[in-house]
């Protein structure tokens, strides 16, 4: 069981993800440089946060053409586990591995703060150890987190229970006040049809140790490791 953390020029949460997987979850983990054409037999891939290629053109727009992303796409389409965090979520949307797009925050400001998200479905490898409706306190740090998709796709995401995290208040109510960036239907994270690819704007890797103010983010990694062990 090996994890791979993709590194683009401009990734800046790669070491955080590596640390959580290697030191906190005690799993084998390796970095995968963006020019790599293969995934070094990794069993799960993390696309970390940051500003891949400076976010030039659009967030994730250049990164998706990296050699490593061709390998990640192939891996994801054959059922491989791929987790995109923040900029990684944006890259996965641009690459067409997840539907929709992440637009400029409605308030036009970069937002860096702790928020609450509600686990909407436990039917993914990334949330299987959580309880449905569980509220996680995790940080966000982004300028483009305003999730958008057209209405037919939104209806489909709802019908197929592919909205995995919604922004909410501390009590777990998905209110307008609990929505930091204007995201459609308070969407903070979604998965693909096969439920093996997940993207979310919050940073679970920044809230996986008590010293960091919250361990709620570790629920995601704990779920993933558990799901992989059972495979």
């Amino acid at each position: 069981m090996k994890f791979g953390v993709v590194v683009f020029p401009g990734s800046n949460c790669d070491h955080d993800a590596y640390h959580v997987l290697g030191t906190v979850a005690r799993q084998p983990v390796t970095f995968l440089w963006h020019e790599s054409h293969d995934l070094q037999n990794c069993d799960a891939i993390i696309i970390p946060g940051g500003f891949a290629f400076g976010d030039y053109l659009r967030t994730g727009a250049i990164a998706r053409f990296s050699p490593v992303m061709q390998a990640v796409s192939k891996f994801a389409r054959s059922g491989g586990l791929v987790l995109g965090i923040c900029n990684g979520f944006q890259v996965l949307c641009e690459a067409g591995l997840l539907p929709g797009a992440l637009m400029r925050n409605a308030g036009l400001k970069f937002i860096c703060k702790f928020v609450h998200v509600r686990v909407e479905s436990t039917d993914t490898p990334y949330t299987q150890a959580c309880a449905r409706g569980e509220v996680l306190r995790v940080p966000i740090a982004h300028m483009e987190g305003n999730y958008f998709c057209d209405e037919p796709m939104h209806a489909r995401l709802q019908r197929e229970e592919r909205i995995i995290f919604r922004y909410c208040d501390a009590e777990g109510r998905a209110t307008a006040e609990g929505n930091p960036n204007g995201a459609l239907d308070n969407i903070a994270g979604i998965c693909n049809e096969g439920r093996n690819v997940l993207g979310l704007m919050p940073h679970p890797e920044r809230a996986s140790e008590a010293e960091l103010g919250s361990m709620d983010g570790f629920r995601v990694f704990e779920s993933l490791v558990g799901a992989m062990a059972r495979q």
Partner: peptide, 8 residues
């Protein structure tokens, strides 16, 4: 392919 994101 590159300059636009056809979703938006």
């Amino acid at each position: 392919e590159v300059l636009t994101n056809p979703v938006i």
